[in-house]
Structures are given as structure tokens and as C-alpha cells.
Write a protein that binds this DNA or RNA. Structure first.
Length: 726
DNA sequence: CTGGGCATCT
DNA sequence: AGATGCC
């Protein structure tokens, strides 16, 4: 399958392209109106759905950040797992989700980068979604590296204005077909879809530097299944007539998206192992086990039928941050971990711009049998004064007030006096609400999103007929997007790559109430904390609190928590130890909070961030990689990579912070000296800019859009926070 | 030596 | 609040 990509390729591409690019006719004679129905006219019987899957996503992001890594086998490590690796590594037998031990055994020269901090992956992920949305608003995310796009309307509009439906061709592969085997004229929608898919993949590559795979089919299930047929950096279309082929080719029921471990287990209990087993299994029997809706869904999936609509994802409905570990058994450690997680979460929440109204703490207890099951969580409302601080930028104040809340939740689950053994802690903000944005009420962006998402009705699972009514994307929106698209495409033709992050516009909600929340009167009902030791009165205790801890909240805490908050472990995280109650206490900043905690956090996140910042300012298209290599020149997906020697820096074998903290020193030391020098100089070139990940710089667009949640109550979104203004 | 997110459904 | 599923 090597070089011969795009086997079914014709030359009328330019014609198609121009046809595709020019702005749409404003009349949609044949465009699906609100009454899109199979009975109503020559409208599309089928949707055209694209599925995009970024190649080894985390590895690609890292290789963009440091192009020298393109030449070496690279693995992205989270804890003891290689979550993904580049294709150099895959050639040596590495696979996804392999243990570090196995991976190093199989590939001793493997270069490992820590991937627990998802910040860069998340940012790039949203850039991809944003880019796709600029062409077509119906984009649904699946994880960080996959997107569905419903281009039905775009295709129909193009077809309506295309005079010669016989000139059609397919771009890329066609499943189970070779060469000119396939008559594209018989599948105009999919054929056109394949060209759009190619166009979008090219945009992702030219603007963001990422390669991807795509699948073109009539529903999400098939598009996803077919997209992985040829990897990497290729695309495949699936014709209706080959649906049963691709379903039958699945090696087992687990391969069906939507059938997870549990479902597969229950199916196996019914004697079902293969796709065919499920296809032939009586629906009634299946209903008995799974209930009507799930049973029908499963039966449909088995034959490649999937009516589920592409639901625009928009901004996330929750933000969470978590860490796992082998063992955590002291309340002090829990407190510190919660503090660390909350600090980072609050920072992210602040960049988002929305205000969280619910806080949730999740833990996982150790269990010899099932280490990764049984999560427990408790949630509570976030007092508005805290929520406002989060959204307004007083993040450090917010953290200080949030931690006691979290500890309260923690002790709803864990008895601090008894022994415990945790293996994971997660903190989560949800119920995110857009706060009164002045320009947000009826702004263009807002209405755009309102339109694009409101017409969503939950599609019911119609039985067999494959022709699901395409969720009538509102055509107004599509037209507007199409014109946007031409503009963007024109810009793309200038070969300007917009990977830079600055985008300034450091707009922030100015919060008049920044100082408004005052410590409530201390005298009222102090007695609730009955046995505060004889040492100090409640008043004294309260005075020892950090200035931004709400005494009201404090006194509601279990006394053990109160003690913890006053303990050295906690106080040390503050700039001013509690020794002198009368001394003015500075507001702790995130760096302080971040600083004193578990050893692993000393892995210098500073350098990493610095590097990221510096790299982000470089234009990937123009940056010349300086690599000194005698290694077999891997064919890079990116042309124009150049190689020169650098090596003015000496490599220090010490395991200190001379190189980024996410680089395994051990592994690094095993690299060839040339590679070491190369990497070192790469790192050294990045000049320090920021200290904390608090790069608040990516300005928040003043606009927040409300995405009227389909069905559910408000889902106020500020998706634009994730999408840099283009 | 099995991650760190997200979402939906019940 | 938990279970399940996806990456």
C-alpha cells in the first residue's frame, strides 16, 4: 500500500476544485429544506459523512514542537504506558498502549516523552476542529484526534450546480476497489465527498502541519470503520455496495464502535462472537438482554446501519484534571494533590472564560482485583463568589477557596481516620455557564451557533432503512460558511501558516467584584467547631487563614480539615507562613502553589513551557530544521527539512534540569551523541519566556457564543476560547 | 507496570 | 452517582 496512494485518481481535479471553492449559489432549489424526507423530492437519500483521524496524534504534536524527533523512534509516555508512538517506532514493532518495559525491550533506542500534560494536544486538537468547522459547521469531536463532519448539504449544493455528473472521480482509495474499477458517476455524492475530504486533509496539513486519515461513507459508523483502511495519511471511501464487506471483515464484535468491553462480554454470554453471529441473532432475544433501544442499535450496527446524527460538539461541557499513582494514603498527600490539580484546572477554566457552577471530586480506590474500576465521586455547587473568581482571573484566590471544598467532598467518601489507598484523583468543573457577555447576546457568532445547533432533534432509531434523513443542517448557515470557506482557502493559497498562538486580544471580564467578597463577620456561631483546641480561639484560627479563605466555609469543614489547612504542609504553600498572624499575607500565586509538592512536579515544567512558547512563534512552514544525522534519512511527510550541524552545546550527563523535564534522562543518554547534541541545541534555542503554564497570553476572545443545547437546557459555550481567531 | 480526558445514559 | 464507551 506504499507510495501508491490515490490510486483512483483522475485529472479533472482542478475543475472540481474550483467548482468546490467558489461561493455557493444562493438558491438552493434542490437543497434539502426543513422537510428533508425521502418522499419529498430528489433530495439525498443518504448523508455524506466524513471521519477524520489524525495520525499518531500526540507524537505528531511533539514532532512539530521538535522536528528533530521526526528522525527517531518516538513514544509518548503516560505513566508506564506508551499511549502512542510515531511511525518510525511502529516500524520496529511498537504499538499503541504498550507498556514501557515491552517497548524498550523491542526498541532500545526509543525516545520517550512524557505525555501526561495534555495542554498542547488539547490546543492542537481544537485547532483541527476549528479548521474543519470553518468549512462546515457540523463537526463532532471524538476524543482529541477524531472528528466527524456531515457534508451532506455541501455535497448536494455542489451537485445541484454541477452540470456534468459524469466527470466524477474518486480521490484516494475506494474500499474493495482498485484502479478505474469504480464508476464514480454512480456515486456522485461519495465521489464529491472524497474530494472534499482530500481538501480538508490538505488544509489540516498545510495550516497545522498534521497528517490524517479520512473515511467517506454514508454514516458515522461506516465512515469511522473505513477511515482506518489505509494508514497513515490516506483516505478511503466506502460505497453502499461494499457495506457488508467492511462489516464482515471486522474480526470481532469488539471492533464495532459502540460495543465496549461490557457489551462484548454480555454478547459473548449469549454465544455471540462474530459480526455474523449478531446479524443472525433474533432481535427478540437481544431485546430481552439489552432492552429495545440498545438491542435495535446493536442489530443495526452489525449490518452497518447507523442513524445517529453528527452532533456539533462545541465547547466542552466539563473540564477536568486528574492524576493516577500507585499509592496515596495520607490526607496530606491528598490535599497537596488536590491543590495541584485544582490550580491547573482553575487556570484552564479561566482561559475558557465560562464560569463553573459545579465541582466534582472523583477518586479511585485500590482494589487488588480491579484496579481500574470503582470510581467514586461527590459533587457540590460552587459558591458564586468562588466561581466568579475563577472566571475573572483571581485564580489563586479561587484555588485557595476551592481546596477546602474539595477536601469536604473527599471526606464524604474517605474516612480520614481509617487507612485508605487511592490510585487516582480527579477534579472537575461542570455546569459551565457563560457569564453576561455584553456583546454576546445577539452577536453574529452567537446566532451562528444557535442556528447550527438548535435544529437538532434527537434522531430516533428507525429500523432498517439505511437512508437516514440527514439532519437538516440549516442551509443559511452552510452558505455563510461556504463563503467563509472560500476566504480561508484563498488565504491558504498564500501559504501562510497560522500556527502562532499570540492572537493577543487579552480581553478579560473585568470583575467589579474582585474584592467584593469580604470575610463575613467572624463572631456568628463559631461554636460549630466544637473542640478547637485550647490553644487558640476560633478567632485566632480564622486569622491564621489565608486572606482569601472564606471563614464561613472554613468553619463548616471537619475539624481535621481545618487542622490540615492550618498545618505546615498547607501553610508552606503560602508565601507567608502563618507564624505571624498580624503580618500582611500576600496572595499566593500559582507558581508558589505549584512549587512545593511531590517530587515529580519538580520535573521542570518551566523549560517545557518555554520551549512550547518559543516554538509556537515559529512558523512550521518556514522553520528549517537543523538536524545532523547520519541516520537513514527517513522520508518525512514534510518536505524541505534540512540538515546542518549545530552542536555548540555540551551535553551534560547529569539528570538535572538541563533538558526538558519530559525527556527521560536514561533514554536520552542512550541516544547517539550526535542526536544528543542535536536535541540539546534544539532545547537550548528556546528562550525562556514564561514561567508557569499560565500563559494567559492566548487572549480570550471577548465573544462567547451560546450554544443552545439541543434538548438540554442551556449549554452556554464559549467555543471560541478554544478556537483562536483566525 | 493500564492514561487522561471527554460524553451519554440510567 | 455510577456505568459504560471512545480515543
Amino acid at each position: 500500500m506504499d507510495g501508491s496512494e490515490d490510486e483512483v485518481e483522475e485529472e479533472d481535479e482542478t475543475e472540481w476544485r474550483s467548482s468546490f471553492l467558489d461561493s455557493a449559489p444562493l438558491s438552493h432549489a434542490a437543497a434539502p429544506g426543513p422537510s428533508l424526507d425521502k418522499t419529498s423530492g430528489p433530495t439525498p437519500a443518504h448523508r455524506v459523512i466524513l471521519h477524520f483521524d489524525l495520525d499518531c496524534f500526540y507524537a505528531q504534536v511533539e514532532m512539530i514542537r521538535n522536528p528533530a524527533l521526526r528522525e527517531v523512534p518516538l513514544g509518548i509516555q503516560q505513566k508506564y504506558i506508551i499511549v502512542t508512538c510515531n511511525y518510525v517506532a511502529r516500524e520496529q514493532g511498537l504499538t499503541k498502549l504498550m507498556s514501557v518495559t515491552d517497548a524498550k525491550e523491542k526498541c532500545p533506542q526509543l525516545v520517550l516523552l512524557k505525555g501526561e500534560d495534555l495542554t498542547h494536544y488539547r490546543e492542537m486538537s481544537y485547532k483541527v476542529t476549528e479548521l474543519l468547522m470553518s468549512y462546515c459547521p457540523l463537526v463532532e469531536r471524538l476524543g482529541f484526534d477524531e472528528n466527524f463532519v456531515d457534508i451532506t448539504d455541501m455535497v448536494e449544493r455542489r451537485l445541484a450546480q454541477t452540470s456534468e455528473p459524469n466527470d466524477f472521480s474518486f480521490k484516494g482509495h475506494v474500499y474493495n476497489h482498485v484502479g478505474a474499477d469504480v464508476k464514480a458517476g454512480d456515486h456522485p455524492q461519495l465521489a464529491l465527498g472524497s474530494h472534499i475530504a482530500a481538501e480538508l486533509r490538505e488544509a489540516i496539513h498545510s495550516k497545522l502541519g498534521l497528517t490524517s486519515c479520512a473515511g467517506i461513507a454514508t454514516n458515522k459508523l461506516l465512515a469511522k470503520l473505513v477511515s482506518g483502511t489505509f494508514k497513515p495519511n490516506q483516505q478511503t471511501a466506502l460505497l453502499q455496495e461494499n457495506q457488508s464487506d467492511i462489516m464482515g471483515a471486522l474480526s470481532g464484535l469488539r471492533k464495532v464502535p459502540g460495543v465496549g468491553h461490557q457489551t462484548a462480554k454480555r454478547l459473548r454470554a449469549l454465544g455471540l462472537v462474530s459480526i455474523q453471529d449478531l446479524q443472525l441473532f433474533p432481535l427478540n432475544d437481544l431485546v430481552r438482554e439489552f432492552g429495545g433501544p440498545s438491542a435495535r442499535r446493536l442489530k443495526n450496527l452489525a449490518v452497518g446501519v447507523d442513524d445517529s446524527p453528527v452532533i456539533p460538539t462545541g465547547a466542552p461541557q466539563s473540564l477536568s484534571d486528574e492524576d493516577s499513582f500507585k499509592k496515596m494514603s495520607s490526607t496530606k498527600d491528598v490535599l497537596e494533590k488536590i491543590q495541584q490539580l485544582s490550580s491547573s484546572l482553575v487556570e484552564r477554566m479561566n482561559k475558557d472564560g465560562r464560569q463553573p457552577h459545579t465541582f466534582r471530586l472523583t477518586i479511585r480506590r485500590y482494589s487488588a482485583t480491579n484496579r481500574w474500576f470503582s470510581r467514586e465521586s461527590r459533587q457540590c455547587p460552587i459558591p458564586s463568589h468562588i466561581g466568579q473568581k475563577i472566571a475573572s482571573g483571581s485564580g489563586d484566590d479561587a484555588v485557595v477557596q476551592l481546596v477546602p471544598l474539595a477536601m469536604k467532598l473527599f471526606h464524604k467518601m474517605v474516612d480520614g481516620n481509617a487507612a485508605f489507598h487511592l490510585t487516582l484523583i480527579n477534579v472537575c468543573f461542570s455546569n459551565l455557564q457563560t457569564r453576561g457577555a455584553p456583546a454576546c447576546g445577539k452577536g453574529a457568532i452567537t446566532s451562528f451557533f444557535t442556528q447550527s445547533t438548535s435544529p437538532r432533534k434527537t434522531q430516533i432509531c428507525s429500523s432498517q432503512s439505511q437512508n437516514d434523513s440527514s439532519q437538516s443542517g440549516d442551509s443559511h448557515c452552510m452558505d455563510r460558511q461556504l463563503s467563509t470557506h472560500s476566504m480561508i482557502t484563498q488565504r491558504a493559497s498564500q501559504k501562510t501558516v497560522t500556527t502562532k498562538s499570540p492572537c493577543s486580544s487579552g480581553f478579560k471580564w473585568e470583575q467589579s467584584s474582585t474584592v467584593a467578597v469580604e470575610d463575613p463577620p467572624l463572631q456568628t456561631e463559631y461554636c460549630s467547631t466544637a473542640r478547637s483546641g485550647p490553644k487558640e480561639s476560633n478567632n485566632a484560627v480564622t486569622r491564621r487563614l489565608p486572606p482569601n479563605v472564606d471563614p464561613e466555609v472554613f468553619k463548616l469543614l471537619p475539624e481535621e480539615i481545618q487542622k490540615e489547612l492550618l498545618s505546615p504542609a498547607y501553610a508552606n504553600s503560602l508565601p507567608s507562613p502563618s507564624t505571624s498572624p498580624s503580618a500582611p499575607v500576600a496572595v499566593p500565586d500559582a507558581t508558589h502553589i505549584r512549587k512545593n509538592k511531590s517530587p515529580e512536579s519538580f520535573t521542570d515544567s518551566k523549560n517545557i513551557e518555554d520551549k512550547a512558547e518559543a516554538i509556537n512563534e515559529l512558523d512550521p512552514a518556514h522553520r528549517v530544521t537543523t538536524v545532523n544525522h547520519q541516520r537513514p534519512p527517513r522520508k518525512s511527510a514534510f518536505p524541505g527539512e534540512n540538515v546542518t550541524a549545530e552542536g555548540r552545546l555540551l551535553f551534560r550527563q547529569s539528570s538535572d534540569c538541563e533538558f526538558p523535564g519530559n525527556v527521560d534522562p536514561e533514554v536520552f543518554s542512550e541516544l547517539p551523541p550526535e542526536v544528543q547534541r542535536e536535541l540539546m541545541s534544539e532545547w537550548k534555542q528556546q528562550k525562556p519566556v514564561l514561567k508557569a503554564p499560565s500563559s494567559r497570553k492566548p487572549g480570550r476572545s471577548p465573544m462567547t457564543k451560546d450554544r443552545k443545547a439541543a434538548g438540554k437546557g442551556s449549554q452556554a459555550n464559549s467555543l471560541l476560547k478554544y478556537f483562536k481567531p483566525s
